[in-house]
Every structure is written in structure tokens, then in C-alpha cells.
Design a protein around this nucleic acid. Structure first.
Lengths: 193, 193
DNA sequence: ATTATTTTATACCAATCGGTATATTATACT
DNA sequence: AGTATAATATACCGATTGGTATAAAATAAT
């Protein structure tokens, strides 16, 4: 018994993710979603619950992908300094390439929903904490290998890099001169001694 | 001839500013606005144009107040280091005090509207540029007085402090442990040598 | 006091919002 | 092949959206 689902649930979720990421929660309508996802309204509701549930599922998928993407970038290079430098330089490169500037889905949600919904306050906070752990592990690796000074406070430095990452990502939404963000990146990286 | 306006236009604009600041553009309805401003819909439209014009007027008022507020805080103290330290410490204090966490109206707009509306891209970018000038002037003052090392690049350092200010303000919307932001503030301030 | 003019208040507009009831279509099992 | 079940498509729901037409109320000048 039973008719099987015709659309690919993961592909539909990816489409929803891209839309919410670009336009935010409130500005994305059910019509926008069904059009982009290529499915009808009842299919969306039966598969994902409602608009907010779909948004949460999209955000959770994003944070997982985002964290593994960052982890991969920081583990690829040999030198820790070079790894962070490449990471921030690529971030700037990517952000100036696309238009409109989507930024980071999690950061966007932190601004739009976190102050008004505890569920998203927790979800976005925990992602930032997780990123700071990844940064910290990378810094510790640099200290252990002798590349970085042992006097560095890895935890605090990692937290500061997360703050900088957020600041850069948000600032680029206003498309300042590239020198502004590039100079800042260079100065932030100077903390990695 | 002519009946005179019964409501205070500046007071009504302040009310609108607080509402847009807290909820953003899309999530704030005309009904929300007229209720908070204590006026009827036609009065709002005759005085401010439409929802977007009202939003823009509110944001412009905010950026002016914000810039003068920051300028005042940085000129109050004698020592430049102390001035920046007090500035960031007060920022954290204020942000953890209020709930919901409104953050910065201009930063919120950078995230919500700048990528989709060039008018707000420019408006928010120019405010950040203006803040970086205020920061730069303060740093130059510290260099001239001998408090800061003359080798410091005042412009780049100011830009980095703006990036940090944005990052801290946004991160606090997810209400992380205070030590996270306080440690970051301390490390950022260590750039003021 | 009358008139001209503008603000006010009420009521309304079409369009869109998130969400569903209904009925048709397609499939896995008996 | 027939039947039960779930996914689909169409059409619809009340509520709310941003925005206005209309008319009453109030004021400054004549």
C-alpha cells in the first residue's frame, strides 16, 4: 500500500535553505517556498510540518554543513597561520562575488529571530560556541607544533576570531571598500603570534 | 485657515524608531506602528509618506543619535585606552540588561535590507565608515599625546574596532556567556598598544 | 460668523499571508 | 484485479497586510 513521495526531500530542503538564507524568515512566503522547491503546499506541510519547522530544519542543515566546511578548511593547510589567513581571505572573496550578499544563514537568524524566540537564541548561540571550539583546536595545534607562542590564550583568541568573523560577515553586507575588510583581516590575524 | 497637527512628529518618529529597531522592517506592521505612535493611519501617511519612508526617517534619526553618542563617549575620558575600554564595557553592560536584545538598529538593517535595497546598503555602509572615522580620530589623539605607539596604523586599527563592535553586538543577540564577549573585548583592546 | 484648508477618525480596499479541506491520482499489498 | 493508503493538485479559508476614500472635526484668515 501507499503512494511514494515524488520529490526529493533533501533537495527540497536545500532549496528552502537557500531561500531562507537569502531573504530571511519573515520575508520568505509560502508561495516563494513552494515555487522554489517545486512542490505543492500540502506536500510541504506533510513533509516538514509548517513554515517555522521547515525554517528550523533548514537552519540545522546549514549549521551542520557550515561547521564541517570550516573544519575542513582549517585542517587542510599545514600552517595554522596560513589556514586562518586562507579561511578569512576566501570568506571575503566569496562574499564579494555573490549578489545579493547572503552572508551567513546562522548570523542572519541571530539578528532576525534570536532575540524573539528562545529556540533560535539557543540554536544560533550553540553554533557560535561550536565554531569557537573548532578555532580553539586549530590554535592549540599551532601551539603544540611550536608554530604559535605558548603564551597565547587559545580559548580567548578563538572567541575573538569568532567575533571578528561575525563582524566581517555582517559588515560585508553593506559592501564597503575591500581594503576596509582586508586591512581588518590582516590586523586580526596579527593576534596569531 | 488650516487645522494644526495634534501629535508631536518627533515623538511619533521616536516611537517608530524603537519599534523598527526592536522588530525589524518586515515584522513591524502598520497596526503595530499606529498603536505605538498613538496616531491613525492617515496621519502617519500624511506625515511620513509610507512605511518605507518612515523606516528610512527612523533609521536616519538613529544613526545621527548613535554617532553623536559614540563621539561623546570617546571624548569624555582622558585616556584613549580607558575611553575604548569603557565604551566596550558599557556596550556589553547595556546589551545584557535589555530584553529582548535590540542590538544596533543600523546593524540590524545591514542584515535585513542592505543586500536587497541599494538605498540601505549605502546608508548603513556610510554609518560604519563614519564610526570608523570617529574611532580613527580618537586613536590619532592617543598617538599624538604619546599614549599609543606611533607605529600604530590608526586607520586600520579603527576599522578593526568597527568590525569587532559589529561582531560583539550581533553575537550578544544569542546571549552567550558574558565571559565570551568580555574576553574578546579584552583581546581586541590589546591591539591598542 | 463664514469660509477655506488640513487633520482627524472610521471604514474600507484588493492583495497576500499561513494554513487546509477536498478530491483525485498513484502505488504496495492482498 | 481490487483495495487500502498516502501523496498529489486544486481550490479555498479567515486573518492580516500596506494603503486610501470619505466625511467629520478643528482652526486661521476673511
Amino acid at each position: 500500500m501507499v503512494r511514494q513521495r515524488e520529490f526529493d526531500e533533501e533537495k527540497a530542503l536545500d532549496d528552502a535553505m537557500l531561500l531562507f538564507w537569502e531573504k530571511g524568515y519573515k520575508a520568505t512566503s509560502l508561495s516563494d517556498l513552494t515555487a522554489k522547491m517545486g512542490i505543492q503546499r500540502p506536500s510541504l506541510y506533510s513533509a516538514f510540518g509548517d513554515k517555522e519547522k521547515l525554517f528550523e530544519a533548514a537552519l540545522r542543515k546549514y549549521t551542520k554543513l557550515h561547521a564541517s566546511h570550516i573544519r575542513k578548511k582549517l585542517q587542510n593547510n599545514l600552517s595554522v597561520k596560513e589556514a586562518f589567513q586562507t579561511f578569512f581571505e576566501d570568506l571575503v572573496e566569496e562574499e564579494y562575488k555573490e549578489s545579493p550578499n547572503k552572508g551567513c544563514f546562522c548570523i542572519n537568524t541571530m539578528v532576525e529571530l534570536a532575540p524573539h524566540d528562545e529556540k533560535f537564541e539557543i540554536l544560533t548561540r550553540e553554533h557560535q560556541m561550536y565554531l569557537s571550539i573548532i578555532f580553539q583546536e586549530t590554535i592549540v595545534r599551532g601551539i603544540r607544533s611550536g608554530e604559535l607562542e605558548s603564551s597565547l590564550n587559545a580559548k580567548v583568541l578563538a572567541q575573538t576570531l569568532v567575533v571578528s568573523l561575525i563582524g566581517l560577515t555582517v559588515l560585508m553586507k553593506s559592501r564597503p571598500e575591500r581594503s576596509f575588510v582586508e586591512n581588518s583581516v590582516a590586523m586580526i590575524l596579527s593576534l596569531l603570534k
